[in-house]
């Protein structure tokens, strides 16, 4: 089986969902991401990322704030799962180890 991987954009979405804790749904994630990345994010891209994350089991969705009207709207919240946290951790660890192996000369370039 192919290893389940975490894409760069997915990682950002997952992190944001985690940061926003109980209040992570479409609009808030979008706005927070836009603030952090300083660029426009389309809802379509966000949804497809969230749907992929949900499939992989890294977020759980729950329903809140259903309107009573016909053709009602509902708020779909996304909570990061334990597996989600682990995936984030793994990515971070991998990055850190790569960073540690960066030669001193390259780090000096930053200074």
């Amino acid at each position: 089986m192919k290893k389940v991987t975490l894409g760069a954009f997915e990682e950002l979405v997952l992190l944001t969902a985690g940061v926003l804790q109980d209040n992570a749904y479409g609009v808030t994630i979008k706005l927070e991401l836009e603030r952090q990345l300083n660029k426009k994010i389309s809802l379509g891209a966000l949804y497809s990322a969230l749907q992929r994350l949900e499939e992989k089991g890294w977020v759980n969705s729950r329903i809140g704030g259903i309107t009573e009207k016909q053709g009602g709207r509902r708020k779909q919240y996304y909570d990061i799962t334990k597996e989600g946290m682990m995936a984030l951790d793994e990515v971070r660890a991998m990055r850190n180890s790569l960073f540690d192996r960066l030669p001193q000369t390259a780090i000096n370039l930053l200074k």
Binding site: K30, G72, R73
Partner: peptide, 16 residues
């Protein structure tokens, strides 16, 4: 199902 989620988000954004 997906429609009602999307509509909520869209309308909230719209009013903002």
């Amino acid at each position: 199902d997906f429609l009602s989620t999307a509509l909520w988000d869209l309308e909230e954004l719209f009013h903002q």
